[in-house]
Design a binder for these strands. Structure first.
Lengths: 302, 302
DNA sequence: GCGAGTGTTGCCGGATCGGCAACGAACTCT
DNA sequence: AGAGTTCGTTGCCGATCCGGCAACACTCGC
């Protein structure tokens, strides 16, 4: 939203330091410093006293802080009023998702939504893609985030994220230095794979079948986390999606090498709802939000 | 400021139409339309009902309008509180300016300042540059905006705007089609000039003297407005500054052709205060604001 | 004096904003 | 009914703003 300056300002006032506020907001200190400076220019007077150990409000700053709180509260209360109008007060939404999308996509999007609609509560349940579709058909899930779900006329996809298959390797593994890995090669590798109820596994099976190879996985599991751990421990390679490996890659614990091959079907994360079913207002709003997040996620990580 | 969306929103709600709000704010309707759309996305619901004859608030919109008013009021009240702290309540500032800078520079800057500090009142007096300096020394002016004022150790320049000399011509005049005019040529032209108390006139006189030419002005006046009218009526050419002709140029009534010549001294508009004198808080704030405006004006019109 | 902690600044890539012109929709007046 | 008017919206583009990064300046405590 556009009230960034006031949010930054209030947070700095609370923490007494640009640095701490920056950590709390997960932005660079310079961004906050600039917004404070621009606010001071707008009011034509310093709002903080700069000290060696942080920032202390000036008298003028105190007045602005009061304003900042008023502003932020009143936006919050407008949201609450709208929630009430739309029957989202005390709403509850049941989201089922594949494990691989949870950390990198579902939770960040959920955090945004929850900040806007604090009174809505959630179930976040994890299952394999096949099971997800079943939950949706059984009306046990309002929204599912599935990986290459089977086509079904009662399942409506609102948005999708193309998510490449990668080979996850320990940074010291020989594979980690490569630009890509061909399908034909993975038959020879020490591999960990998800079990056959996973959309990811179906994709891999189809590809290796088309290439005429047989896989001898060193480990089969029903947990994405365990696939990551396998590779992180240097026990061998795992096949995962880029999205599921992002955090470990950024933090240097894994390297993700793209899989290459002519039979590489589009690997696709989809936000799905049950066709024809009328969702609760809260669920509808969250579904819209997830779909929007998916589109911007897709745009940002191509 | 960054609360644009809420200002736009409130104004549209008040006027009941994007177009009227756009006219009132002097921005394009599309800009407002977008901000409204983004606000609606932020709240996840339409805030206006689109009708053939304008926009009508929805119920959700009414809730947001309340918020918008709270926000805008509370910013206003923070300003007022700061003004009070700084002793700017009911301040009064006496500004003296050259006529040529009034419309294009002084009034826009003043409007911004006045929006931020509504309780400050002004004298805006017009005089020639020589007289301005005298007012400042006599403590009859707090701030002056002068054109190439004479150097004086008690006159402190806070900021300056380089302002090129131009020949103003009627659009049909032969000169209007040219890229530039050399000093040497203006001796032959039918010219209007300000009288000798104007900084602008001093500049012209110095240049023609250096070029060894004598001028036979067709009209001498103590009013910039009359110089403009002279050229607009097609009676001949006027020597003016780019800043003083901008509006007429934009609206197609005049063409401004740059003057060229090696003796062309920098033509310069300066924001000046009396050195050593302690200004009232309101005057100090306005001086700062004018100086800042001058810098951004200079940056924007090179 | 030096290191650790702080806030700020220059630079740059990406996102946003506003102006312009063209469009589509709905009403009004022949 | 049809032409014209009055709306709001959208695509495009240039200018501006914002945030990340790295280097810097400053203060305090050892």
């Amino acid at each position: 939203m556009s009230l960034t300056r006031y949010r930054y300002f209030a947070l700095v006032a609370d923490h007494g330091s640009v640095r701490e506020a920056a950590d709390a907001l997960r932005v660079a200190p310079s961004a906050i410093s600039r917004q404070i400076a621009s606010l001071e220019e707008e009011y034509g007077t310093p709002l903080f006293e700069r000290r060696a150990r942080g920032m202390r409000l000036t008298t003028a700053g105190t007045a602005v802080l009061e304003t900042a709180r008023t502003i932020l509260d009143s936006v919050q209360s407008a949201r609450a009023a709208i929630d009430e109008l739309q029957g989202m007060k005390r709403g509850h939404v049941r989201v089922w998702t594949v494990e691989g999308a949870m950390d990198d996509f579902v939770y960040p999007a959920l955090a945004e939504f929850s900040a806007a609609h604090p009174s809505v509560s959630f179930d976040i349940m994890v299952a394999s893609s096949d099971q997800l579709v079943q939950r949706l058909l059984d009306d046990e899930a309002d929204i599912v985030v599935a990986f290459n779900p089977i086509q079904h006329r009662s399942v409506l996809s609102l948005a999708e994220i193309a998510d490449a298959l990668v080979v996850a390797a320990h940074p010291d593994d020989a594979v980690a230095a490569r630009q890509s890995v061909r399908i034909a090669e993975i038959g020879e590798m020490r591999l960990a794979l998800p079990d056959r109820t996973f959309g990811l596994r179906r994709l891999v099976d189809d590809m290796v079948a088309a290439a005429g190879i047989a896989l001898k996985p060193a480990l089969v599991t029903n947990s994405i986390q365990s696939l990551r751990s396998f590779a992180r421990a240097g026990l061998g390679l795992s096949i995962l999606t880029r999205c599921a490996t992002r955090r470990d890659v950024v933090e240097g614990r894994l390297v993700a090498v793209p899989l290459q091959g002519r039979n590489l079907r589009k690997a696709c994360l989809k936000i799905c709802v049950r066709n024809g079913r009328t969702l609760s207002p809260a669920a509808r709003a969250l579904a819209r939000h997830l779909a929007r997040s998916a589109r911007s996620y897709a745009a940002g990580h191509v």
